[in-house]
Amino acid sequence: MTARASGLIVDIEGTRRFVAASLAIRAVQRPPVTPVPGAPLGIALVDGLVVPVLELGPDPAELLLCQVQGQLVALAGIRVVRSGLFRTLEDAVELDGKRIRVLDVEAELRSLEQRVGAVRLGEVP
């Protein structure tokens, strides 16, 4: 039986990436995001909670709420294109015959932390 991974396919500046359902909570329409000076980071109010927003691209359409290491973070500058179960290909999934690499959200956060130092993330609701 073919292994399948559940999650979302997002588009970041024309490149598609897979976000596993274990990380992704849900996609929401982008609320106003207040930038944090000196960092590629912003904060936004989502469902009454202040959530750190990580800008991955220029697309202003949506936010993808994720739970990383028990903390809530929103990915911005992306567009969610598909959701469901996708055939697994090692470190990727397949969509319409194309290989879609997994978006390493934890690595993105680590990169951010290296650039701006300690970043305080929001609490999990």
């Binding site: 559940s6 359902a21 969610v80 959701s83 469901g84 179960l85």
Partner: peptide
């Protein structure tokens, strides 16, 4: 669309 994508995510879960 977002609702459908989130529903699909829940279904996948």
């Amino acid at each position: 669309k977002l609702l459908a994508l989130n529903a699909g995510l829940e279904g996948a879960r």
